[in-house]
Design a protein around this nucleic acid. Structure first.
Length: 296
DNA sequence: AACGATGACAACCGCACTAAA
DNA sequence: ATTTAGTGCGGTTGTCATCGT
């Protein structure tokens, strides 16, 4: 049952056009049309953009697709330990202010962070049989998970000799990572492991050949670079809250178990950790900036 | 092999807000 | 002052892949 566009205002489309508006998963052709149009005309004025680009989508849908998926600087894939830590901290501070949280995780969208929270964090709350807003859960988060995350960050850095925060996450710069195209909606044969875009102008947009990957392709490439948590979720090499459960969980809210006892987050970092850069060789965060921010 | 349950996440919806007409 | 278009945000739903039986 098709519904017309609802919410988000009106659209400069005739009734006939509204009747044939598409919904649901985006096809490769639609993505290319949107990317191509924005590459030449820029973004904004989404309703007229949708029409001009020949897309049978609402402007709102185009905007969402662009911002959450196609934008060149959007980071997708593994959420690093550092990002997880920051999400936990910022959520404890601001609650479900996803866009505000996302502002402090460059390249991450509010939608991705929201999904992370719902699928991972809330799941753990459920396993603990407590509400995400309960004191018990918040205590577990602060006194158990966050310190554990920091331990793992530290351990990962020590074992690899890498700069903390090195991740296998990719951005759309150069590729459209793991494009989850729904082939039944596409006329293109996506059977090969990867394919090149036919439009030469797209190469200019992405600064080189653009690779489109099928949905089962992991842009991280090597299986060694990525692992799965116990739920089969692809996560960063040392990631996720899952094995926090290797630690005893205190269900009595007795802070004796707390390894840090109200230790401020910045103190975690100060315990012999020398985090010079946050992610990807320091493209995003400087650790000092993060600490300054968390002290605010 | 078939099927249902579950998880991940892309996409949509409704509402609010702002700026321009 | 009012209307309209555009945009942003948070909550929710839909779709697909994977896993277990």
């Amino acid at each position: 049952m098709e519904h017309h566009a609802k919410g988000g205002g009106n659209y400069s489309r005739s009734e006939e056009e509204l009747m044939e508006l598409r919904r649901g998963p985006w096809t490769l052709e639609e993505d290319l049309a949107l990317i191509n149009y924005i590459a030449h005309h820029g973004e904004g004025r989404w309703n007229s953009l949708a029409t001009s680009a020949g897309l049978k989508r609402t402007g709102k849908s185009c905007r969402l697709r662009w911002l959450n998926y196609l934008r060149p600087d959007v980071r997708r894939g593994n959420i690093t330990l550092e990002e997880q830590l920051l999400i936990l901290e910022l959520h404890s501070r601001w609650g479900n202010r996803w866009s505000k949280i996302a502002q402090h995780l460059p390249g991450r969208t509010d939608n991705e962070i929201k999904n992370y929270w719902r699928t991972r964090v809330q799941k753990h709350a459920k396993q603990l049989k407590c509400d995400v807003n309960s004191k018990q859960f918040k205590d577990n988060m602060r006194y158990l998970w966050m310190p554990r995350l920091i331990e793992r960050i530290q351990a990962g850095a020590a074992s690899t000799g890498q700069t903390v925060g090195t991740s296998s996450t990719t951005t759309n710069s150069g590729t459209i990572p793991a494009a989850n195209y729904h082939l039944k909606n596409s006329n293109l044969n996506m059977g090969s492991s990867q394919m090149m875009l036919p439009q030469p102008n797209m190469a200019g947009y992405f600064g080189g050949g653009v690779k489109i990957y099928p949905s089962n392709y992991t842009p991280e490439g090597s299986s060694a670079a990525a692992s799965s948590d116990s739920f089969g979720t692809q996560v960063s090499p040392v990631s996720d809250l899952t094995d926090c459960y290797n630690y005893p969980v205190n269900h009595n809210n007795n802070q004796d178990y707390c390894p840090t006892n109200e230790l401020p987050l910045q103190e975690y970092f100060n315990q012999g950790l020398e985090f010079n850069n946050w992610m990807d060789g320091g493209d995003f965060f400087n650790m000092d900036d993060v600490l300054k921010f968390l002290q605010q």
